[in-house]
Simulated scan of single mutants.
Amino acid sequence: MIRLLRQMFAVPEEIRITGVIYLPWRPGDAITSQLLRDLPTARIEAAINQRLLAMK
């Protein structure tokens, strides 16, 4: 899961990812730095912001 925050004072207005909640497939599995690097956070932000811009 990701936490999002709307940057209302940015020009143009945008959404930023401010948090990540990792739920492993098996309880107790460790999260590694490689798993975090593999998250496509920039692509997620870009897709959300593209939809936000299209709505305006």
Results as ranks from 00 to 15, higher is better:
residue 34 Q to P: 00
residue 44 I to L: 07
residue 46 A to D: 07
residue 25 W to S: 09
residue 30 A to I: 14
residue 51 R to Y: 10
residue 22 Y to S: 06
residue 15 I to Q: 03
residue 8 M to A: 13
residue 51 R to V: 04
residue 45 E to Y: 00
residue 16 R to F: 05
residue 43 R to M: 01
residue 7 Q to W: 02
residue 40 P to T: 09
residue 7 Q to N: 12
residue 19 G to I: 04
residue 15 I to A: 06
residue 54 A to G: 05
residue 3 R to K: 11
residue 47 A to E: 04
residue 8 M to H: 05
residue 44 I to H: 00
residue 10 A to S: 14
residue 37 R to P: 00
residue 13 E to H: 09
residue 39 L to R: 00
residue 42 A to R: 12
residue 6 R to Q: 06
residue 1 M to G: 05
residue 16 R to G: 03
residue 11 V to Y: 04
residue 19 G to Y: 12
residue 6 R to G: 02
residue 43 R to H: 06
residue 17 I to Q: 02
residue 15 I to C: 09
residue 15 I to V: 15
residue 21 I to Y: 06
residue 4 L to D: 00
residue 11 V to S: 12
residue 9 F to S: 11
residue 31 I to A: 01
residue 40 P to M: 03
residue 23 L to S: 05
residue 13 E to N: 15
residue 40 P to Q: 02
residue 23 L to H: 10
residue 4 L to C: 03
residue 52 L to P: 02
residue 26 R to S: 08
residue 21 I to T: 09
residue 49 N to D: 10
residue 28 G to Y: 12
residue 5 L to V: 11
residue 39 L to W: 00
residue 39 L to F: 05
residue 1 M to Q: 07
residue 8 M to Q: 11
residue 16 R to S: 05
residue 14 E to I: 07
residue 13 E to Y: 07
residue 32 T to Q: 06
residue 17 I to S: 02
residue 11 V to K: 15
residue 12 P to V: 10
residue 15 I to W: 15
residue 47 A to T: 13
